[in-house]
Amino acid sequence: MAPLIGIVLGLLALGVVALPFLKRGHPLGGGDALEVLQERRKGIYRDIQVLHNDLNVGQVSQLEYQERLQAYRLQAALLLRDEDRFQELDQRLEEAVLALRQDPRGTLTVGEGPLCPSCGRPAREGLTECPSCGASLHRSLSSS
């Protein structure tokens, strides 16, 4: 009886552990980056809520309230900017991939110029190296 239970448990464990390898994955962090930015922004909003409450119950002075509120606003605005950039880049990548599927011999370009195959950031036409990461821009998606 015990060996049978052991075998069943072992197979069950093996199946659960092997399950992720049967699904297609994506590189680490790719899907999480936007969530991280949004999570941080939510945290700042919570801090602002607490700050408002602190002001109203006399826990912070008006001066400290203004200072901290401005700092929070700046942080939130920067995060919002990063989110916008991320979403815009994501959208352009989607469009570029779609275009490439329609014309597999083309170069991976987004908008006005090509995208770096290494870091994914846009680069101007005519450059041989990516200004962001220094990788070679000669490699097209179809040859990689």
Binding site: A13, V16, V17, A18, L19, P20, F21, K23, G25, H26, P27, L28, G29
Partner: peptide, 12 residues
Amino acid sequence: SSTQVLQSARNA
């Protein structure tokens, strides 16, 4: 940087 290996570790 493999999400599959990491997810497998979490499942364990």
